[in-house]
Design a protein around this nucleic acid. Structure first.
Length: 873
DNA sequence: CTGTTCACG
DNA sequence: ACGTACGTGAACAGC
């Protein structure tokens, strides 16, 4: 029988896991992230691969035979952080519990052990999988050996087969060694040839095969490259030698000794407990045991609500089986305080005036898991909830927006409370999802209410500690009420209008489709990038510009570059554009119109990492506007009262104004204070010309640079945005930062703050944690750095419009106006209004929005109205 | 259930 | 050298 042999690079994987995950710790304060990451990876591999033989190889000691060749090998490496060193004993114990063999050999590295064993296994005709975080190991790939290299994260894996290496580098596995020889490896301090990087190395090897081949043919080369190669021949050969994995190490283990037959479950459970791997333990002993672990809870299912049950402050859990709280049936209501828990079935709830009165009295404080969902659902039953004093989801979101807030059980677990089951445990998932029998359901609702009651104080104290209580209590909490009202009110949509547009579009699409099929010479699915790729790049022979993971890219920017090369391209672009309108906006929106003729979106208030809202079922924050054909969709969004008008008010350049404020950059502040066109002003400074000499192109460039600045600029990003070279993009950035030194300072400070504190903040002290900011992985770190620059800007803008919404809602009520706020689209607010209020609104709306938060530059709001949303321009 | 594409700010 | 602009949601194809 052939064996399936798994060889793991213990040190490399532990390092990867350590840097990929935030610093977790168990109850004794021992850090566990590396062991945890290793475990997750291991579990996944065991599930997927089901090996018959396994070994974890470790490096032994500091020096190896390679140091005899090159004493600086792996020199300049940072010392292993103590937070990681302390985890190695646990890692060993864990491997022991899995009953996996481990091995190390003085003077050799883990690579060499793996190299030697994989050779033996191959010779015996066995299948081998090598797992490491180090790409060096890919040199071991062969017909029967695949090398898995962890990608960002730890459970994500890239599989290096011979073919994959060929495709990715155009090299054989053996040539990986030659590549390392030429380009070196900074992390192992292998020098390589100075000035030769991956690109050059690959080019050379494609032509000359090996390092030796390059030097054999050295006379064919010329210029700088030849010079560099000649000067460093010795270095190249030594580097190659260093990069070569020893496949004949004097190891004492044999492949036959590595049999794997599963973990010792008792031992595994013990070590997981020691490390506090709760989620893994749960998986281990299924839901039954989890139920048993919960503390007993007494609750009373009531047939009638009596005043004695109701106190001045209670947790209120209104249970629905799904997320769509605008339509989802109510399954029951639970009330909890320190002394008692009551569960009220839906019919009892509906019938009780006592309960309705209590819920509508703001003097009674309610603590809820999701106040917006509850009040929207109560609203359907004719109950106007008042006095929502605590919202678990919002509180937890403000403490840390990076977690997902969909389930009470998962939220309260973050705060150490475990006496409640997850929705999945109670309702099941996928096809098996169902409402359970009453006893189970009632207990679940009761436990949720109790959990909210118990956890409230902890969440609030965390908010206080972080100086975020104000943000939570005075911004997000009142906003939830307003959003709930906006959602319940809904937006009126003209069904007929959409249907007519749909018919036109359908006819047009049919014509275009026929034209495309004719041009292609066959019928195919234009919506399938795979089929389309074959037609364009194989059948029609157009040049493939970009590739995706799965094949040719056919994205719009690629197709645009091909326009003019073949008439089919512009037809495809048009087909895509109109197809999107039909399926997403015509058919999609029609499906979302409720019986009242309105669309009731849901604003997610605890989702984005920056503090913005998002809109779902449907998304009303991405209704087309940039292209006229799409913009017409907005004609279907109409006032819900006859004769009323739609009103739109949007902030002009809010993000750049926020940047001016928080950076304090004098030039930027001055430009806004004097009311200049900001892109023109930027162009003047960047190109050193007076206003009347700024050309349209200069302004276009300045605008793109401004965009880039807000996003956390990178040369590459700007070069893509402007379709110019990276070098030119870099020059624009340098000139911008020289012109606006305050902005440069802000960028540096943001990154510095993130590195020091682990998070960045907005104007109102919203936080975003950036665990990757000190990552050793360039990509992850760069991403985190751009995020550190962007989040305070985008997030502060979100803070401002949220405050404006609260002020605006207050003002409308104060003034006793009929106007209704309907939608928020990040920097604009949409209303419907009776015409007689228009004159007043023209003053009031900009005033409230502009004064929401005082900045050191003015905020500016543009106001428009019309018969439909389309006409508010 | 994931990847690609495309709509918005 | 690395391979990206920041933040979202929905439809569709193809496993």
């Amino acid at each position: 029988m052939t064996k399936k042999v798994l060889l793991l690079d213990g040190n490399s994987l532990a390092y990867r896991a350590f840097f990929a995950l935030p610093l977790l710790a168990n109850e004794q304060g021992i850090h566990t992230n590396a062991v945890y990451g290793f475990t997750m990876m291991l579990q996944r591999i065991l599930d997927e691969e089901q090996p018959t033989h396994m070994l974890v190889a470790f490096d032994a000691g500091k020096t190896t035979f390679r140091h005899e060749t090159f004493s600086e090998y792996k020199g300049g490496r940072q010392k292993t952080p103590p937070e990681l060193s302390e985890q190695f004993p646990y890692l060993r114990k864990l491997i022991e519990a899995y009953q996996i063999k481990s091995y190390e050999l003085p003077n050799y590295e883990a690579d060499d052990i793996i190299g030697t064993l994989s050779r033996e296994a191959e010779e015996a005709g066995d299948e081998v999988i090598i797992i490491s975080g180090d790409k060096d190991l890919t040199q071991l790939a062969s017909g029967s050996t695949v090398v898995y290299i962890t990608k960002k994260g730890i459970t994500d894996i890239e599989k290096y087969t011979v073919d994959h290496i060929q495709e990715k580098y155009g090299l054989t596995p053996q040539q990986i060694i030659d590549m390392k020889g030429l380009m070196g490896d900074a992390s192992d301090n292998i020098p390589g040839v100075p000035g030769v990087g991956e690109k050059t190395a690959v080019k050379l090897l494609a032509k000359h095969g090996t390092v030796e081949g390059v030097y054999r043919d050295i006379e064919q080369l010329k210029g700088k490259l030849k010079e560099k190669l000649e000067q460093n021949e010795e270095l190249a050969l030594v580097s190659k030698q260093l990069a070569t994995i020893e496949r004949q190490a004097p190891i004492e283990v044999k492949v036959e000794d590595l049999t794997y037959s599963g973990p010792d479950m008792d031992q595994l459970q013990r070590i997981w407990q020691e490390l506090s791997f709760k989620s893994l333990l749960e998986k281990l002993d299924a839901p039954e045991q989890q139920q048993e672990q919960q503390k007993e809870l007494t609750f009373q299912v009531v047939e009638e609500v009596v005043p004695e049950m109701l106190s001045g402050a209670m947790a209120v859990q209104l249970e629905m089986a799904g997320e769509q709280y605008h339509t989802e049936p109510v399954l029951g209501l639970a009330l909890a305080d320190a002394n008692s828990v009551y569960v009220i079935p839906p019919d009892v709830m509906q019938a009780s005036d006592i309960l309705k009165t209590w819920l509508e009295d703001g003097a009674n404080k309610k603590y809820l898991a999701d106040s917006k969902a509850a009040s929207a659902a109560f609203h359907r039953s004719g109950i106007d909830l008042e006095g929502a004093e605590f919202d678990l989801m919002l509180g937890a979101y403000i403490v840390n927006p990076s977690l997902t807030y969909t389930d009470v059980a998962n939220i309260v677990r973050e705060y150490g409370y475990t006496d409640v089951s997850t929705n999945e445990q109670v309702y099941g998932k996928g096809a098996k999802k169902a409402v359970p029998f009453d006893e189970l359901l009632h207990e679940h609702i009761a436990r949720k209410a109790k959990a909210v009651w118990e956890v409230r104080a902890i969440v609030e104290s965390r908010l206080q500690d972080n100086e975020q209580f104000g943000l939570y209590h005075d911004l997000e909490l009142p906003l939830a009420v307003i959003l709930g009202q906006m959602e319940s009110l809904g937006v009126r949509v003209d069904r007929r209008q959409l249907e007519e547009m749909g018919q036109e579009l359908t006819a047009k699409l049919k014509d275009i489709e026929a034209g495309i099929h004719e041009a292609a010479g066959e019928a195919f699915n234009i919506n399938s990038p795979k089929q389309l790729g074959v037609i364009l790049f194989e059948k029609l022979g157009l040049p493939a510009i970009k590739k995706t993971k799965t094949g040719y890219s056919t994205a719009a920017d690629v197709l645009e570059k091909l326009e003019g090369k073949h008439p089919i391209i512009s037809q495809i672009l048009l087909y895509r554009q109109l197809g999107k309108l039909l399926s997403t906006y015509i058919e999609g929106l029609l499906k979302e119109i409720h019986e009242d003729g309105k669309i009731h979106t849901r604003f997610q208030q605890a989702l984005t990492q920056t503090g913005r809202l998002s809109s779902i079922n449907p998304n009303l924050q991405n209704i087309p506007v940039r292209l006229e054909e799409g913009r017409k969709i907005r004609k279907a969004f109409v006032p819900s009262e006859p004769g009323w008008v739609m009103v739109a008010a949007d902030y002009s350049q809010i993000e750049l104004r926020v940047l001016a404020h928080i950076s304090g950059d004098e030039g930027l502040v001055e430009a806004f204070r004097t009311g200049q066109d900001i892109h023109t002003a930027t162009a003047m400074d960047v190109f050193h010309v007076p206003a009347d000499e700024v050309t349209a192109n200069m302004r276009r460039v300045a605008k793109a640079v401004n965009f880039g600045i807000v996003y956390g600029i990178s040369e590459y990003g700007l070069s893509e945005g402007l379709k110019i070279s990276r070098k030119e993009a870099g020059e624009f950035i340098d000139r911008y930062l020289a012109s606006f030194p305050g902005v440069q300072r802000y960028m540096e400070e943001s990154v510095k703050q993130a590195k020091k504190d682990g998070f960045v903040t907005t104007l109102m002290n919203r936080r975003r944690y950036l665990p990757d900011i000190n990552s050793s992985n360039f990509n992850m770190r760069s991403f985190a750095e751009r995020t550190a620059m962007n989040t305070p800007i985008q997030g502060s803008a979100a803070d401002i419009i949220k405050k404006a919404m609260i002020d605006m809602a207050d003002a409308l009520e104060q003034e006793g106006m009929k106007t209704r706020m309907l939608l928020q689209v990040h920097d604009e607010l949409i209303f419907e209004a009776p015409p007689e209020e228009l004159e007043k609104l023209k003053i009031l709306v900009p005033k409230m929005m502009e004064s929401a938060v005082p900045l050191n530059v003015p905020l500016k709001v543009d106001f428009a109205h019309g018969d439909t949303w389309y006409d508010t321009k």
